[in-house]
Amino acid sequence: MATATFRIWRGDPNGGKFHEYVAEAAPGMVVLDAVHAIQASQANDLAVRWNCKAGKCGSCSAEINGMPRLMCMTRLTQLTLDKPITIEPMHTFPVIKDLVTDVSRNFRAKIQIKPFKPRKPDAPDGTWRMAQPDVDRVQEFRKCIECFLCQDVCHVLREHHLHDKFWGPRLYVYSAALEMHPLDVEDRSGELRGAGGIGYCNITKCCTKVCPESIKITDNAIIPLKERVVDHFYDPLSRLFRAFGAK
């Protein structure tokens, strides 16, 4: 059977280096299979985070040959096997150990965003009526599996480390899902502009490129949110209306 060489980064917050492992490359294998095989036979304590192994939970994010990807959805046949395959933890987040990073800041940022607030029910039995096309728009954002690859690739976080000033693509997708929810009546433009720092995004669309769920993050979530912020804070007419008490 064919084999492949894997260069896996191993270490902890104090540093680390690449270790080379040779593993079998069986038909249909994904990178996570190879990592598991190495873990089972050569490195029992190799740390990797994973759950579903079917692209549904977003746990096994890593950088494979420099590209942010899910290990469970990257097949070996998509890669060149005559050179070693490099597997590293996501660069944007602090390393815990080996391929596992500390993504807790994403959870902390999420709590800052105002929760869903529905309008009054449409029917006496407490239910609502929504048209499928209105739902479709938001369902795109709700496909997000929180793999945080978009956060990983975003240069505002990765290069400029503006973690405290910029929520990042995942949390804009989350905000968009709330803001465009047919039932939601909350207004989040204030914090999107302020604590959320959406203005730092200069729409390079890297997040859209790496999204394993093919969510059009920049076009469908971030740009419309930026427009909302602009309408709300910089449009002279709406400022005038607000001055007279309308929302």
């Binding site: 869903f116 609502w128 739902v135 929810h181 039932l183």
Partner: peptide
């Protein structure tokens, strides 16, 4: 199920807008 909808879940819809 209705409670989930009140918490923000978005289910597919019937032609008259129900779940």
């Amino acid at each position: 199920v209705k409670e989930l909808e009140a918490w923000g879940a978005l289910f597919d819809r019937t032609s008259d807008g129900r779940i």
